[in-house]
Every structure is written in structure tokens, then in C-alpha cells.
Amino acid sequence: MSEPGHPANPPTPPAGWPPPPPGGVPPQPAGFPAQPAGFPPQPAGFPPPPVGFPPGSAPASASGGGKRWLVTVAVAVVVLLAAGITSYVVSSSYARTAVSQSCDIYKCIPRLKAESVVTALKDRGYTCTTDANHETCELQIGAFYFDASLQVSEGLITRINLRVYREASAPLTPGSVAFLKWFGALPYRDDPVLAAEIEAWVDQQVEATKDAKAVIGDYEYSLTNPEPHSVLFEIKGTYS
């Protein structure tokens, strides 16, 4: 048997297959095997399927490829939106519940306007002065001198320095402790539980008359007794 495809051996049609007439559609030749029952008759003029190619394996045609790319794009868009929305929700809820807010290079007490604190203190009878980025309010009552200095950045408070000075023989009074505690609770003024904890901490340190430091949330609390007559209390945002 000669090799198929060899130029010297052109393929031969199967027996009974007459060579197609040139330039015409092959008519159903006589003797062609009958089609199985139920199979729709091939319409006249329909070209025979390409021989040698498994059915359905045609490489992506123009329209098939487009559909696939549509699927890819759709998946990407859905993922993009899902990821965007999810991370937006997560990060915005994180930012919304943050206990500090960045202000310039500092961390500040979120949303609390330094101006509103100064106004509240003025209304309470304190004398306040502004010096560069510091707002200082003071009040002297009898043997006690109260001093609160707020370091302001972008209108917010990044640091609070308190001083309660009293003359000799005067122990810290409940009013003096209330002064320290009120400022201590400022960063957590909307969180009664944490504010109460901070106030309890101040009470403890005052009672112990010890120098103490604590980091609570994003703030560093430092209560010191540098001399017998004065108590210093600093509340500052930790640097970002």
C-alpha cells in the first residue's frame, strides 16, 4: 500500500463515490447510504462538515472569544467593587471609631475643638491666653493655683499639660483631683467606661503620691510630683 498523501498516490474516493462534478454542489448520488431515521435531511446546498476536525473543537471564533473576555471583565469588575466596598466599609469604620486623629505630625483628640475647651474654661471663670500653638488657662483659688496648657495643632488638641500648685500644708483637695480627672477623660469623653477607668487611675496615683505613667489607647498619661507643692499631669497623643 502506498503512503497516504504521497503525491504519487492521490487519495482515492471510497468505492461508489463518484468524483464531484466540477463547480457544482454534489447531488445526492444514487447508492448513497440512507440516513438514519429521524435525522433531518441535510438541506440542499449545505456544505459537508470539515473533515478531520473533531466536532465542537473549533478554535475560539471571534464571537466566542468576545464572550469569554466579557466574563473575565465581569469577574474583574465584580471583584473590584466587592473588594472596594468591603475595604471601604472596614477602613471607614476603623477610622470612625479611632481614638485619635492625625493632625499635622501629631495625634490629636478626635474632633474635639481646642477652642470649645478654652471657651468652656473661660465660662467657668478661668483666665486664658494664647501663645503660638498653646492655649493656657489659669485660675487661682485661695491656696490653690490651677494651670492647664493645651498644645493645639490644626485646631485640635495634641497635648495637655496640667499643673496644680498649692501652698505648703495644703493637701490635694477633691476639687483639685476633679480638675485633673476632667482633663484626663477628655480623649475618651464619649466612652463612659474608659473615662471612668482613667478617673479611677488618677485617684489611685494621687492617693499613692507616686509618679506614674500609663499608655491608654493612643495617649500617654504621666502624673508626677516634682516638688511637694505641685502636681503635674501630662496627657499627650503618642506620635504617629
Partner: peptide
């Protein structure tokens, strides 16, 4: 997102 919190002191 602005953090939550009151603009005035307690």
C-alpha cells in the same frame, strides 16, 4: 472618614 466624637468637651 472623620472619626466619631463630640466637638465639645464633656
Amino acid at each position: 472618614t472623620e472619626p466619631e466624637g463630640s466637638e465639645t468637651a464633656q
